[in-house]
């Protein structure tokens, strides 16, 4: 039991690290691009969050704001993954009561995401 728990903690910890590092790197790329390349490309400087359709076309055009947005989005999703990992690990421990609780938290978070897609 204790060994298992240790493994779970390490999984969760890794998810947190990977998520926050990649988010920071993505935003840094966006920021540097914005600093060095804005003069040569015509970038839309409206720095509101992009809607999904706009977001992907901006990413294809290598719009710095799309990278910033992606970084911020990855950062916002990291805790979501952390809850998922916890739920999964409770499931592996066959602790179903806590699978239910973690799923509840996940559902609440997913509900809070929905308005972004509307």
């Amino acid at each position: 039991m204790n060994e298992k728990k240790e493994k779970i903690d390490i999984y969760v910890s890794n998810i947190l690290l990977i998520g926050s590092y990649s988010a920071a790197v993505l935003s840094l790329i966006g920021l540097l691009m914005l600093l060095f390349f804005t003069r040569t490309t015509s970038v839309q400087l409206e720095s509101k969050p992009l809607s999904f359709s706009v977001f992907f076309s901006c990413l294809r055009e290598k719009n710095p704001l799309a990278f910033l947005n992606l970084g911020i989005f990855v950062m916002m999703l990291t805790p979501l993954f952390r809850v998922m990992t916890a739920a999964l690990s409770f499931f592996l421990e066959k602790d179903y009561k806590f699978v239910l609780i973690a799923s509840g938290v996940l559902i609440i978070l997913l509900v809070s995401i929905i308005p972004i897609f509307i």
């Binding site: 920071a24 910033l68 947005n69 970084g71 916002m76 978070l109």
Partner: peptide
């Protein structure tokens, strides 16, 4: 954060810079 994001109240530039 999702609530603010959906309302367009997360400024990409400000958030990105501060977050780093």
């Amino acid at each position: 954060a999702f609530v603010y994001y959906a309302r367009g109240e997360v400024d990409l530039l400000v958030s990105g810079a501060t977050m780093i």
